[in-house]
Design a protein around this nucleic acid. Structure first.
Lengths: 325, 325
DNA sequence: CAGCTACTTTGACAATTGTCACGAATTGTT
DNA sequence: AACAATTCGTGACAATTGTCAAAGTAGCTG
């Protein structure tokens, strides 16, 4: 069971550290690869390899200063107009919808670790966007943070179920994980009630009320929404909710333009955090982009669930003009 | 007094944001400059300029993962051997003394912001190393941190007086600053006593006892030390202290091999923090490198002032072998 | 509105960096 | 001990990036 011996120790450099040494000289001291190669007594190509290894190991971290996005004109406007603690606006000038989503996710991924403090309990919602945030995050080791899954699991055809979102997020943060071992929606209200009463589930739901921060996306209340395609709601149910004023979806629950929960046939059958638990948190991080998300985002903000927003330039502009800027 | 109009608005891109847009595409999405230029409809050279501007503005931050240095073999050994909370060991394989110092400073500069939390009061010592740490720090905006100058000012021929160290540090951290408006050492004990009693100085000294974290370097007790060249101690005084067991200097005070303060002729005439105030802090960050610093560092650690260390590979090795590894 | 200033943008060229096929060294296997 | 199998380091070439002088453009001024 001998550890796989490194064999890079032929040079004059201690070997174990040549990757770090090279990365330091390159990124911190701004030397050229040739210079580094010469000093370490290896060929330049080796340095190229070292630098690539450093990148792959996650040794090198390139971030864009968050101030550039939170201090952006539109970010300030969002903050003032909607009374947020802060907003993070990523550029999407020359980007498509898909690309904008990835950028917003990346932005949130870079911002989130700075918004967390030791002792925090972070609730994680579900969806494509949240999944991409977790995916885009660098591995960090945050002290004493725990991550809870805010809504039950569902069978999405895309692979980003609620427990994968929270699990990835916890892993990237190096945090403790509280998963919700139950489906998001059941066929029968009675079964849901009994499941909620089940000790293990009850304990997990109880843990949710202790979350002091949360990350979620706004879902649109239309037929393309993942809430339908992942089987949480049927087309008929969706129609019912929209007829009764639903303008968006937050953590699996339909909300109206004022952000109030729209009570309906699904609620009794769902397992997940209730919206009133999300009010008045230390942080409610809304991560969304896209034209169809503007109304849901405004609804979520109106409901008082949101303290921080990550979005794109064009979405921010539409939010401001929609809200009567 | 109109704001100087930006004129980069000719292109099809919103203009104000082209720098951010370009930086995002380059650093986050890994595109080539040509690709970015094409997409934004400008020449590649323009993108080069944008990226340089981004760097100059401090928009781009390249850091090497701290885990690589705190998780280093020697870092672990230092931690265990000396009971530290953590150690950060920078490579210095192919580096000279001067370069090693710069690297250690840079390492501390990258690490320090992560060791601070809102509400902290950081005491800042004085010296070449501490100065370079402040200099190497990126501008950040830390919430509710204050910086205090731990020792009075002195006339150093090099420009890094105590108040400049603390002022730079505070500026870089975006923190509140409490300077000590007094000389570090006076010619007469009585004058020092009266100055300490002076309300404004007394208040500043009082503030020092509320520091919960501190950053300092270990000074060597030899004739090349800055403690002599900056006029804090004369050659005779230094000799006196070394004859009485001094092995190093910490925050302007001589300490022996066990880290105890060596009482002597200078103490009465000095204005600055007393060593017992530095014991048992939440964090005592010792930043030093060089062969002549090994004994002083060991002394400082023995005295219980140190919870975190930043040093270089070769110094770490010498510390471990000197201390009987 | 011509002319000036200060600035940005550009194209061509130089320097640096990335790629890849090959050879050398090491390990495990027969 | 000889032979794959594997991995790492190397040199030559391709791609990308940095530099710089010249051209262009907006704003200002007489």
């Amino acid at each position: 069971m001998a550890a796989p011996m490194r064999r890079r120790a032929t040079g004059q450099v201690s070997g174990e550290n040549i990757v770090i040494e090279a990365a330091w000289m390159y990124y911190h001291e701004g030397r050229t690869q040739s210079c580094i190669a010469e000093q370490l007594g290896v060929s330049r190509a080796t340095i190229v390899n070292c630098l690539q290894e450093a990148k792959e190991l996650g040794l090198v971290r390139i971030t864009l200063a968050p101030e550039a996005f939170t201090g952006h004109r539109l970010a300030e406007q969002l903050r003032e107009r909607f009374g947020l603690a802060a907003a993070y606006v990523v550029p999407d000038d020359a980007a498509g919808e898909e690309e904008a989503l990835m950028r917003v996710a990346r932005g949130a991924a870079e911002w989130l670790p700075r918004l967390l403090a030791p002792g925090d309990k972070l609730g994680v919602s579900w969806g494509r966007t949240v999944y991409e945030v977790a995916e885009a995050m660098e591995q960090t080791r945050t002290e004493d943070v725990s991550v809870s899954q805010l809504v039950g699991s569902m069978a999405t055809p895309y692979g980003f179920t609620a427990e994968i979102c929270s699990a990835h997020m916890a892993m990237k943060l190096g945090a403790k994980l509280v998963n919700l071992h139950a489906p998001a929606v059941l066929s029968d209200p009675d079964l849901a009630r009994r499941l909620r009463a089940e000790p293990i589930i009850a304990a997990q739901l109880e843990a949710l009320s202790h979350c002091n921060k949360a990350i979620f996306a706004a879902g649109s209340a239309n037929h393309e929404s993942h809430i339908v395609s992942s089987g949480v709601a049927t087309h008929e149910e969706l129609d019912w909710y929209t007829r009764h004023g639903a303008t968006g979806v937050l953590c699996g629950r339909f909300i109206d333009a004022q952000g109030r929960s729209v009570p309906g046939p699904l609620d009794d059958r769902m397992i997940g955090v209730e919206l009133d638990k999300l009010e008045g948190l230390d942080m409610g991080l809304l991560v969304s982009t896209g034209q169809d998300k503007v109304r849901p985002m405004l609804s979520a903000i109106a409901g008082g669930y949101v303290t921080h927003v990550v979005t794109s330039v064009s979405t921010a502009e539409e939010m401001l003009s929609s809200a009567g800027g």
